[in-house]
């Protein structure tokens, strides 16, 4: 029988990272994710890994760039304002085609905002975030189990595509303690890292760079990256369906909001309302095809987010033209309760 654990989300994530072979963590304190660096500061010593409390998020993302260029699995975690500071580094990581795992325990904003749970960084995470024409893979856990499991996956996908992967969670997922199954790490089959820097011994020198000045080079590089993002869409889209069969209304929601939506759906079902859930697990690549297929049958959708309307744009772009897409936003503060979402779905049912 698999071992059960009772863990806090942030710890489940950190345990997953160590299990996936991450030995380099660089980070800067910011609430509500401090238990992640605190965990690594204690544990990295025990696995002969490296923990540095960097002088800023700008430094931590660039330390990752260095460790990743050396072939190591490296990660950082932060919360929204910290992610803003990391966007430069993320752009360079994407441009230089370096793997990295970056965790955003999304707090509310803009500006200093607040420390409460939010999904306000959906655009920042899924649209690249920094300068230039690039994307990062974005994984959205919805339970402590997924905080762990998707971290294992994140390191594999980062290596598979040589691209940064963002885990987009929030204070609720980070702070709740929950039962989970301690799954072993079964790595994907990954290409050899034949690009890492280690000194030009017995081979030609290698470069890790994102500067392309020669005629036509930049254009080729951009299309090469584009092709990679297309491949992500073909091979690594994930979502969960819940009670979607014979549903007349589908709620589209991710992360914490999706969990609350599940409870709201149970309440609705108890009242005889045929409501189901479509939960994107990868926010980029967005499960547009699965959602389109669903919209051939179901014509009413309600997107629920802990923001004032971001993912709803992707939902509208995905569904068939004759499907209605409604939106219910719970702006940051305290997270929504199931009863609140039940009322919201009744209005459009």
């Amino acid at each position: 029988m698999e071992k059960r654990l009772f863990l806090r989300g942030n710890h489940a994530l950190a345990i997953g990272a160590i299990k996936a072979g991450c030995r380099f963590y660089f980070g800067y304190p910011i609430t509500p994710q401090n238990d992640i660096p605190e965990f690594f500061s204690k544990q990295m010593v025990k696995v002969e890994g490296c923990f540095i409390q960097a002088e800023s998020e700008v430094a931590s993302i660039n330390m990752i760039l260095g460790a990743s260029a050396a072939g190591a699995r490296a990660m950082t975690s932060s919360s929204s304002p910290g992610l803003s500071l990391m966007q430069e580094g993320l752009s360079y990581l994407a441009g230089s085609e370096l793997p990295a795992v970056v965790v955003n325990i999304n707090r509310s904003g803009p500006g200093l905002g607040g420390i409460s749970a939010s999904q306000g960084d959906y655009f920042q995470a899924t649209r690249g975030g920094g300068h230039g024409d690039y994307r990062t893979l974005v994984l959205a856990p919805s339970s402590v189990q997924e905080m762990h499991d998707l971290t294992l996956l994140a390191f594999d996908l980062a290596d598979k595509y040589r691209n940064p992967v963002i885990i987009l969670a929030d204070a609720v997922l980070g702070q709740i303690q929950e039962t989970m199954v301690d799954r072993p790490y079964q790595p994907l089959e990954l290409p050899p890292k034949d690009w890492i820097l280690a000194g030009a011994s017995g081979r030609d020198p290698r470069l890790i760079k994102s500067l392309y000045l020669k005629e036509g080079e930049m254009e080729r590089h951009n299309w090469k990256l584009f092709e990679k993002y297309q491949r992500m869409k073909r091979e690594d889209v994930r979502h969960e369906n819940y009670l979607e069969e014979e549903a007349e209304l589908i709620i589209v929601s991710f992360g914490t909001a999706a969990r609350v939506a599940k409870s709201a759906i149970r309440l609705a079902r108890a009242e005889g309302l045929k409501v189901g859930l479509f939960r994107p697990i990868t926010l980029f690549p967005f499960p547009e095809k699965a959602l389109f297929d669903l919209s051939q049958r179901v014509k009413r959708f309600l997107t629920i987010e802990m923001n004032t309307g971001q993912m709803v744009e992707d939902v509208k772009l995905s569904v068939a033209r004759d499907a209605d897409v409604h939106f219910y936003g719970h702006a940051p503060g305290s997270p929504p309760a199931p009863e609140e979402l039940l009322n919201a779905l009744k209005k459009v049912y």
Partner: peptide, 26 residues
């Protein structure tokens, strides 16, 4: 004629930190 990584503007010492921590014998 050696391995080189390009760093964002001003961040070379942070990039070098990551490299050196990962490859202490280089």
């Amino acid at each position: 004629d050696i391995d080189v990584a390009e760093a964002p503007h001003g961040r070379a010492p942070a990039v070098a930190t990551g490299l050196k921590r990962a490859l202490p014998d280089r």
